[in-house]
Nucleic acid binder design. Sequence first.
DNA 1: CAACACCGTGAATCGACAA
DNA 2: GTTGTCGATTCACGGTGTT
Lengths: 278, 278
Amino acid sequence: MALSLHEPVHPQLGPWLDTVVCGDCLEVLSRLPAGSVDMVFADPPYNLQLRQELHRPDASLVDAMDESWDQFASFADYDEFTHAWLAACRRVLKDSGTLWVIGSYHNIYRVGCALMDLGFWVLNDIVWVKNNPMPNFRGVRFTNAHETLLWCKKSEESKGVCFNYQDMKLENGGKQMRSDWYFPLCTGPERLKDDAGNKLHPTQKPLALLERAVKASTRPGDVVLDPFAGVATTAVAALRHGRRFVAIEREPYYVRAAHARLASELEPVMPLLAAAGA
Amino acid sequence: MALSLHEPVHPQLGPWLDTVVCGDCLEVLSRLPAGSVDMVFADPPYNLQLRQELHRPDASLVDAMDESWDQFASFADYDEFTHAWLAACRRVLKDSGTLWVIGSYHNIYRVGCALMDLGFWVLNDIVWVKNNPMPNFRGVRFTNAHETLLWCKKSEESKGVCFNYQDMKLENGGKQMRSDWYFPLCTGPERLKDDAGNKLHPTQKPLALLERAVKASTRPGDVVLDPFAGVATTAVAALRHGRRFVAIEREPYYVRAAHARLASELEPVMPLLAAAGA
DNA sequence: CAACACCGTGAATCGACAA
DNA sequence: GTTGTCGATTCACGGTGTT
């Protein structure tokens, strides 16, 4: 798939470019050339620890996140996993590249500590403020109404980081874009459903969130890597803004859904691509 | 100072109660009885000036090391400091008590990781969104427009945590209080100035922020501990809402300012206290 | 057709107490 | 430690169906 007319990216990225690879992210990352991607966006497992069923005040049951891939036996296990994928991403990142990670309070403090230990240098932390979060049904805590993103460069000394300041300022009505971002949850037609009409992926992120990260920190033709691609929201954001992508997802079910989503995304432009190739 | 008509608090807290103690927080905390405070609010230092305060066995050796080692060493120093004061606070906290920490991306990820490692259990992370943050003058990052607070109980198994759900709901116009809090920076008349008219303390927090934390997580008569009291904003918030406090500050200059602030805060009610005591 | 009512649902670490 | 009882507890939005 040649989706861009820009300068060719790293020559050895070919087999992995602009597609969703099915496989373990550490294994796939080990085969990618070092210094070959411009930006990483990672939405790793959050390590939620749900102890019991939760009912709404009307006695209905909350459809909780209980996927096996989100379970870790201990902090030590989670930290080891985190160090491994962060180090692997750092290797394939260009020296001028940046890395984004999104998480909640369950994991983001451990992730933040790990990436600093690995030499990453935090540029900003960003809060995604949700206008429509799930309430706290028991009334025992504050409504958990935000998630956190960390945006980092490869090291304190890294030069040439891309930040499209003017684009962001324009998008924010002429004022500097701030560290608080307001987006609704991914619901309605944007939320992918399975044949039974249930949500296809438990944690699909809003496309607008990914688009902002992509537009802020990459140029057209740049390569975006997503090591936990899920249903490939990052890839769609990259496509829509003329960026290349490398997407890795371990679960075949999500990979199939991602391929279908990307095909549907590309359908309107396929005739143009065919004409350009002919 | 007997400022409350509630049940007496822990009998051995007497000498430290309702005043600002000048001293090293670890030293003072070591003399406080275990399980004697209901809530801790901490605004720890996160500047690298800490590097100089902590002892290095061989400074010349450090200077010879490369930057990554130095960075690691400074993280290790900061982590050691963080573990020490968090553990000391945990000891004096009641089993049903909670701890708040405020920080920015420079330190909050390390603090969050440390407190989880010590057994604290996160109840919420809160973002203080500033409506008037300092812009990013060079236009190379997003405007850093928020700080983060962590609210934790002593352990996962802790029972009886105080959360004044209805008060918070009322304060939020009848809807659940969320994890995003909106307060302006501490400026204007609220910001303490020295004789030359310069700001007295570099990081004075808005009183309204402290008041919300105090009102949310303590009852009247409860004891609030602030191990890095600065100019005693936490103490003022406690006073105004009928809570007792233990405040520790190492720098005599800030302690004097805090004493003056508290005296000024109490001035209107001193006649009443005198009459009650007579 | 417009307005309104009703229902479903979203990354959730969501009791206390007595027997 | 386990089990059972009692009690307190939800916001925004989209989709569907009714008036």
